[in-house]
Amino acid sequence: MSTTVEEMQQRSNAMTAAELAGGTESRATVGDVTVADPRMVCRDVDVWYGAKQAIKRVSLDIGKNEVVAMIGPSGCGKSTFLRCLNRMNDTIADCRVTGSIQLDGRDIYDRTLDPVSLRAQVGMVFQKPNPFPKSIYENVAYGPRIHGLTNRRAELDELVSTSLQKAGLWNEVKDRLEQPGTSLSGGQQQRLCIARTIAVSPEVILMDEPCSALDPIATAIIEELIDELRVSYSIAIVTHSMQQAARVSQRTAYFHLGDLIEVGETNQIFTNPRHKLTEDYITGRFG
């Protein structure tokens, strides 16, 4: 059944009124949240921090070999949602996640599932590069070693080399692998963190504003890398840069006050969004 934009706007206005009255109802998402070939399937995800609801019944698929950008104003829940995808919110006291999140058909909140191995399958790159205070080599080798992927030096060497190559950093660091990771520039450190994530063979890479601490050149290198990584991995990226979302992603999801307002092909979202809230945000009309 199709819904006109006017109807959706009326509905969203009605919801705003409900919120003002103290309600916490969720808004219907505009656009198709499903994909033909999903890697992760999230359904009716609610997240609570104590009594405060941060995410309201969000459903979204993350497809294989695609980059999904999550955008929205500060406090809209996009990072909270991202952190649900590898159970990073488990570490926060009072945080409660309900609904269903599946990776390759398996519920990631299943009690029998080890969150540490989940975080190898669903890796994360943060806003600020956070290399371990170890050598460049050890930064990459650490994950495979603790996950028991390999302990043999020759295999580790190979893995470190391959991961650094995939992260586009190999040529810059191959002659100084024993130097501290923190000796690298900001952009190089971020690529080291991406190499570290890749080294444990993830299926999904989550990126939380990975370029916000980088200059335009380092940003361009990371964006190019994201495009290359898409061939092997699924990527979900939170970004405050509209242009970055438009450049790197195939689909874009717009969050607002904990609701997933609209999902669509990135081209459609940035040329002709269907929801007024999306349009107001991406055109700078949102107060």
């Binding site: 242009q243 438009a246 940035f270 040329t271 002709n272 969004p273 999306t278 055109t283």
Partner: peptide, 9 residues
């Protein structure tokens, strides 16, 4: 401004 959406149109 790098216009988007309605502004781009």
């Amino acid at each position: 401004r790098q216009p988007t959406a309605v502004d781009l149109r």
